[in-house]
Design a protein around this nucleic acid. Structure first.
Lengths: 287, 287
DNA sequence: TTGCTCCTCACGTCACGTGAGGTGGC
DNA sequence: TTGCTCCTCACGTCACGTGAGGTGGC
């Protein structure tokens, strides 16, 4: 029979941890002196403590460990816990490998150039979105996109179906071009409706991984931003895997104001426009 | 200028997080209404928030991010932070890969057999230890080891140099044998001393990774334990990379009692002996 | 008036670590 | 007596999430 300090040295588990495990009921001392409160452990408790430490090393929480050590644990439940843990670890490894690639990229930027690194490109998932959209091949971007926007905006506004998110512009061409571009204007919806001709109500697919950058300012410089992100994508070993999106987080439109759009999405005269460029990517050479 | 809710939707950063960043001074609102306490943000704050999110994705703490966003951050300091992060991520990936291998092993055990899995083998590092030791080729383990123990124990006890850890028995043979075994008895020390002939005072090298199991009971069954760990090592894709050690955590010796050893290490008559078997390993096929 | 947004406490999370202040046995 | 070990609060960690309870503007 061991006092807590001896048991701690024996097992290399800190006294504080042993007291903690006692407190949460994971490992009760074999005996506790009623008057002094001294905890006493026995060698028979070593296997249980060893299992606790081993499971902790595998990353299980103390709560889960309590479950795994329960006598009535079925093999299927055990299998389930292990499979879950396996999936979690796999996900963490993938996330860490992405982080690693990003850190290495920043290091290259610091080593090569004097200018501060471009920290603003972020990889993230894009959720699926229900939208009303119109897709056309338009002669030139400037004017046609504004018109296309109105075409979609009107029926959405009439049905009060607009969701709390700005419109999205998708470029369906493989190569970026300003003439005869195949573009789609999409407006997020709260609920589907039967669209008039020329307009579709559909779900914009979710994107597992997109390189995104938020840009504040005039649309004239959006192509520059786009080029910068494309360079970033190349430099980080990714490749474009779907249509480029521009998400207008805060935009300006006289017509929109007339239509009574929520003020959130309307920039004041002279204040900044906010746009997020989103480029779906996948690992270059990977699936 | 945005109210906190609008800014939250714009950036997909929760209101709570924005308030938290305000509180810790990481991102103060451009303006706060004196009477209502309302926070107001501007588009000019977007780049900073984007950097914060990007750095958070890389796993930096908010404290570190504050440092990284400071205007007077030197490129060398930035480089240092990135290198540190890189090392941390690499370490985490390695640890996760080990965990993964362990989880997979447990899964195989659950799938193949009905018996509960052997959770008790743990991988861990062994620290370097200053010891007094004697190494001999002995005709048979039973008696000779006990004698060898006394040979080392006496001078250590005379100098009161014994550290708070039990003695260690090392097997230097490549293959396990009970006859003509090349064994070493090592006793951890608090301080070095000039040893008598036949005894060395040296540092037992640290081991980066060892498969360890704590065994409670009679020494007669130690070879079984050893065999079980060796099977575990094979099944998990490791191979033995150094001499096998037996660390006597709680042992019995009449002679030791005479010598006034700390009671911790002496089992009562009839109570359990506690021994940890430690086998240095490396990844099979790896460095 | 109702609903929505904003505010400030204050507590919970997770697995302990770190004192503070006091006791008991050699 | 001194030093060592044990005890029980109680607070800190980290980055927020989750209510509680109240206010302000349309």
């Amino acid at each position: 029979v061991f006092k807590i300090g001896d048991f701690s040295r024996l097992t290399r588990v800190s006294v504080k941890m042993l007291r903690h495990y006692d407190e949460i009921g994971l490992l009760k001392p074999a005996d506790v002196d009623a008057s002094s409160g001294y905890r006493f452990y026995t060698a028979a408790q070593l296997p249980r403590l060893n299992r606790i430490i081993a499971l902790k090393d595998l990353g299980f929480s103390l709560d889960q460990i309590a479950g795994l050590l329960a006598e009535d644990l079925s093999p299927e439940a055990l299998r389930g816990m292990l499979l879950l843990r396996q999936a979690e670890i796999a996900a963490r490894i993938r996330a860490d490998q992405q982080r690693m690639a990003q850190v290495e990229m920043h290091l290259r930027q610091v080593d090569q150039a004097e200018r501060p690194p471009l920290f603003d490109v972020v990889l993230r998932a894009l959720p699926a979105l229900l939208v009303a959209s119109a897709r056309r091949r338009v002669p030139d971007l400037e004017d046609s996109v504004a018109q296309l926007f109105d075409v979609v905006e009107l029926p959405v506004a009439a049905r009060r179906a607009r969701a709390q998110a700005g419109p999205i512009l998708l470029y369906h061409d493989r190569d970026y071009r300003e003439e005869d571009a195949d573009v789609e204007v999409a407006i997020p919806l709260t609920a589907p409706f039967a669209p008039p001709e020329g307009i579709a109500v559909r779900e914009l697919p979710a994107v597992a991984c997109a390189a995104c950058a938020v840009y504040t300012g005039d649309y004239a410089r959006l192509p520059e931003v786009l080029q910068a992100i494309l360079r970033w994508i190349g430099a980080n070993g990714y490749r474009v895997s779907g249509p480029i999106r521009e998400h207008f987080l805060r935009f300006m439109s006289d017509r929109a104001a007339e239509l009574g759009l929520p003020e959130t999405f309307l920039a004041q005269q002279g204040s900044q426009l906010v746009t997020e460029v989103q480029i779906p990517v996948e690992t270059d050479g990977g699936g």
